[in-house]
Write a protein that binds this DNA or RNA. Structure first.
Lengths: 214, 214
DNA sequence: ATTGAGTTCAAACAATTGTTTGAATTAGGA
DNA sequence: TCCTAATTCAAACAATTGTTTGAACTCAAT
């Protein structure tokens, strides 16, 4: 046996998560990752069979962490009132605006994917039947008329997440010149309130929208 | 003089708009553009001083076309009721889902930029003081309490456009497997209704959200 | 016909990407 | 101790990117 292989793997995964969250998968180069991880160039291919393999591994980690987490766990959300669950979910999606921990990085990775899904990601959610959207669908559903079609609920969920992910992806940008938003706790609370209130006020009427039935 | 230089320029611009709309600026290679335009490799650098220069030219065209257009023209929208103006604006943003004409391509280009603004785009909107967001701000404002801060209105506008651009960018994707949405006129009408109704129902309460004052 | 500026062209350049190679290490089992 | 398999490493590879080069070509004006 050679040196601690697990150490190298962990270093790579940690660096990859950090970079994928910051710039997305496509814009993160293998060389950037190995430099940040302080490992050799060829390590990624040796341990993960390529950049795609590494991403798949990272996606599995992120998905596992996110589904077991309180923010999107179906059971936890069901125990709250619809309004509380929605508020909770939205705030969870906005978490990367405030904290830069591991969980936030995972959420941010998914925010990049929601902008333009990579091939790896599409293959990943194709196999994981319980998509990362299902939590959002469950949250949204409770505001919709009971007989609302699955497809309509999914569309509403996509809208909801779309509003959050714009801010998560472009956090740095919105702090700058044409916008000059100060992104602190007060701002995120306000933003979460805005999205939540708009959804609460509007979703009950969404059923009338006449989205095509399933 | 040599051959019709204007012809070459037009060919390049046309091909570039098509590709930028389809995949975004970064993912469109110079070689793809010149191949589609049926011109020589070096033509882009000769006529536009590089890929960035071409994009800047295209952005100017798109911006001019979009601001003179009924869908986002401030005066046209003011002549409608707030609800009508909102519905009109949202439907306009969703136009690339139905039609693939020039106007739709411009809208789609901006949808890519709203996901992850390129350097060229950021420099462009920095000089064009009337950002392409201002129309959305004006539309949204009429639903907000009169004393609402500019910043809060902008945030609401970003949310509104975020909901539209997700679908515009990933049109093809949503037609496929995990989603299987049939994107026809009925769907787009329904989607526009959904977004509109949610906004109408919720925006009036957005003022309570306590977004940081300007 | 000749000039000369404007334009096209095939080819190469320089930089970056993900991946592969094959030798050099490392550590555990015989 | 020697052997073997796992791991690391520097280097190169092949493909793609945007850009530059310098000669060839076109056409209006002289």
């Amino acid at each position: 046996m050679g040196r601690p292989a697990e150490y190298t793997r962990n270093q790579i995964v940690k660096a990859a998560v950090s970079l994928f969250a910051e710039k997305g998968f496509e814009r993160s180069s293998v060389r950037d990752i190995v430099t940040k991880a302080r490992v050799n160039q060829a390590a990624i291919n040796y341990h993960f069979k390529g950049k795609d393999g590494l991403y798949l591994e990272v996606l599995k980690l992120a998905f596992a962490r996110l589904t077991e987490d309180a923010g999107v766990d179906a059971d936890d959300l069901k125990s709250l009132s619809p309004e509380q669950a929605l508020r909770h979910f939205v705030h969870h999606q906005l978490r990367p605006l405030l904290y830069q921990d591991e969980l936030s990085r995972y959420i941010r990775m998914f925010a990049w994917e929601s902008a333009h899904p990579s091939k790896v990601f599409r293959k990943f959610i194709a196999t994981n039947s319980t998509s990362y959207l299902s939590a959002a669908v469950a949250v949204v559903r409770r505001f919709l008329p009971p007989q609302t079609a699955d497809r309509a609920a999914m569309v509403a969920a996509i809208c909801l997440m779309g509003q959050c992910s714009v801010f998560v992806r472009n956090r740095d940008l919105f702090g700058q010149d044409p916008f000059r938003l100060t992104i602190d706790e007060a701002f995120v609370d306000g933003l979460a309130d805005l999205i939540t209130r708009v959804a609460i006020g509007g979703l009950p009427h969404a059923g009338d929208a006449g989205l095509p039935a399933a």
